[in-house]
């Protein structure tokens, strides 16, 4: 039975306890960052930051409202990273999409393919230079969940914004919460992740449109148009073969054939 994480953004207070719990459980070091004018820190997900709270600011009247978003791997049913991985290192284990750290070659294709920018190469600072290594991302704490525990971020969340369990149950809880929000002054409230990419395993209760949170309205699978893209290249080659090369060198052959014929006549 598929399980999922339910993230109620209407309850999130931006404490970033989930970020710390994630780093602690997964032995990921802290990042050295600079103040860039917001409490949001670090600025981006990375090979050592697998979840973080994005502090979206929205101006409502004369006030600024925060729309927090817990970013990280969505564990898509139809996962782009899994499709584009050339070595098969990225695979589904139940609901969880896992990068096999022993098999990943660090090509970075999954990084470009992810519609949520949730996969990153590990950049290790070695002797002043950066070295690219394997792809890293949220594992949904599979080492915890396969032993009856909840993911570390869920366990630590003090605002009860995070929940973990059977996906059907999480959907029901999420929809009930959305209905309650809609009835209480949040007409735009909605559940995100039920159908996107054949179903995400991170479900979001949002109080505004996905775009206000920086989420894609309709995330696309990276290889949706793969056949058309290959055909685009192949047909271009065919057209360019037919037009310039055929015209110019067919004429050359015809001209020489003509010369031979007229030469024969003179003799």
């Amino acid at each position: 039975m598929a399980r999922a994480m339910l993230i109620d953004e209407s309850r999130c207070m931006g404490c970033r306890g989930c970020q710390v719990a994630c780093k602690q459980w997964n032995d990921n070091p802290a990042e050295e960052t600079e103040n860039w004018g917001t409490y949001e820190n670090p600025p981006e997900l990375s090979g050592i930051t697998w979840t973080k709270i994005k502090f979206n600011e929205k101006v409502v009247g004369d006030q600024v409202k925060w729309l927090f978003l817990k970013q990280g791997c969505m564990h898509c049913t139809n996962a782009s990273c899994e499709s584009v991985c050339p070595t098969g290192a990225i695979r589904h284990y139940g609901e969880t999409v896992i990068v096999d750290q022993e098999w990943c070659i660090g090509c970075g294709y999954c990084v470009s393919a992810c519609p949520f920018d949730a996969v990153h190469s590990l950049h290790e600072v070695t002797g002043g230079g950066e070295e690219k290594a394997t792809a890293r991302k949220c594992t949904l704490c599979i080492d915890r969940t396969s032993n009856g525990l909840t993911p570390a971020c869920v366990k630590t969340c003090p605002a009860t914004a995070l929940d973990w369990g059977d996906r059907g149950e999480m959907l029901a809880k999420g929809n009930a919460r959305v209905a309650a929000l809609q009835a209480n002054g949040h007409p735009k409230a909605r559940l995100y992740g039920e159908r996107e990419l054949a179903g995400l395993h991170r479900l979001y209760v949002l109080v505004d449109e996905p775009s206000a949170y920086g989420l894609p309205e309709s995330p696309q699978h990276a290889t949706t148009n793969l056949l058309g893209q290959w055909l685009g290249g192949i047909i271009t080659a065919g057209v360019l073969a037919a037009v310039p090369f055929w015209l110019l060198f067919k004429r050359q052959r015809a001209a020489e054939a003509k010369e031979e014929t007229s030469g024969g006549g003179e003799q």
Partner: peptide, 26 residues
Amino acid sequence: SYTGVLLSATNQPLWASTFLLPVLFV
């Protein structure tokens, strides 16, 4: 064709928004 398809089959807007990148690279 591969040189264009490699970039097109991603989620980076400049590469993936149209089918024209493989055409251009070919």
